[in-house]
């Protein structure tokens, strides 16, 4: 029982990394743009946030609240800038979305490595702000797995719920979905297609960027943590499919993905498991779980072929007005 609780306290916060990424990606995809740059954008978000936090920590005497707020803001803006770049290329210049996205991922990962190497020269001072990000449990129950349940966990859930409400209950959401489903129709009724695409991509990228910062400052909390962000970013893209393009389903999906991702390393560390004497290759199989589950969900949703569960109809297709 002790292991179950401990496992959940690790898995759920880990999942929030995916939740940030997938909420951001869902917004972008709802506008009809398949942003494969999300892993790179999360990297840039992490680097931007850490750089700001490090600067504030080294400046000294900055209240914790400001460190958190400015850190989040810097992360959001850095990632949003990547979203702007992606939008300029794919919305205005109509570049191929897949190629642009993959380029953004490679570029973003490189930018992060460069910045993190720079931050490392001052001993990764941003990690000193770790207790602030892990508020309140780092003070209440120090040293336990509860510490991972920091403020950004709740922020992720709030953002996902708000995104879900905006998409389903407001006119802005209705217009955004129309743009992603059928941009020609949206254009014909006077919706500014370009503005919605830019807006959704930039805000979505910003949200995804917070996921990168979250992983370092709330979950992993180590100087080496940044190296895992790109991998986690790809899982966020998979989570979008798993959640059937719905942010509120993504909340549960992210917890599940967190659990599945963690299972591969956590389960072998349980003494009871070690006594079973299973071969090492079995633990490698466990690490496949998130991907296997995504394939299963994709298969089931394809077979059921329910229209509401399909990706936005115009996903990945650039919109040319002249063709109407």
């Amino acid at each position: 029982m002790k292991y179950v609780l401990d496992f959940l306290l690790n898995a759920i916060p880990l999942g929030m990394t995916f939740l940030y990424g997938s909420t951001g990606e869902i917004l972008t995809e709802k506008a009809g743009h398949l942003n494969l740059g999300i892993p790179g954008i999360m990297c840039v978000g992490a680097a931007g946030g850490c750089a700001m936090i490090q600067a504030l920590v080294l400046a000294g005497n900055v209240p914790g609240v400001f460190i958190v707020l400015l850190g989040l803001l810097a992360s959001f803006l850095a990632a949003g800038l990547m979203g702007l770049l992606y939008s300029v290329l794919t919305v205005s210049f109509k570049a191929n979305q897949n190629v642009t996205g993959l380029t953004m991922t490679i570029f973003g990962a490189g930018v992060m490595r460069f910045i993190m190497a720079g931050l490392g020269q001052q001993n990764h001072a941003y990690l000193k702000a770790l207790p602030i990000f892990r508020y309140p449990f780092s003070n209440l129950l120090p040293g336990t797995s509860w510490q991972y349940m920091g403020i950004m966990v709740y922020l992720a859930i709030i953002i996902a719920v708000v995104a879900s409400l905006v998409l389903t209950k407001t006119k802005v959401g209705l217009h955004l979905r129309a743009v992603g489903e059928n941009p020609a129709t949206a254009d014909a009724v006077g919706i500014n297609v370009g503005a919605y695409k830019y807006g959704a991509t930039i805000i979505g990228s910003g949200i995804a960027g917070l996921g990168g910062l979250f992983y370092i400052m709330n979950y992993a909390g180590s100087p080496e943590a940044y190296k895992s962000i790109e991998t986690l970013g790809w899982l966020s893209v998979a989570l979008v499919i798993f959640a059937l393009w719905r942010p509120h389903l993504s909340i549960f999906g992210s917890a599940l993905f967190g659990a599945l991702y963690l299972a591969g390393s956590y389960i072998p560390s349980i003494p009871a498991f070690q006594q079973l004497g299973l071969p090492m290759s079995f633990t490698q199989l466990l690490k496949m779980l998130p991907y296997v589950v995504t394939v299963i969900v994709l298969t089931i949703s394809s077979v059921r072929n329910k229209r509401e569960d399909q990706p936005p109809a115009a996903l990945g297709i650039n919109y040319y007005r002249e063709e109407r």
Partner: peptide, 8 residues
């Protein structure tokens, strides 16, 4: 050719 969003 109707200009309608199918899933709406």
């Amino acid at each position: 050719h109707f200009k309608l969003v199918d899933v709406f």
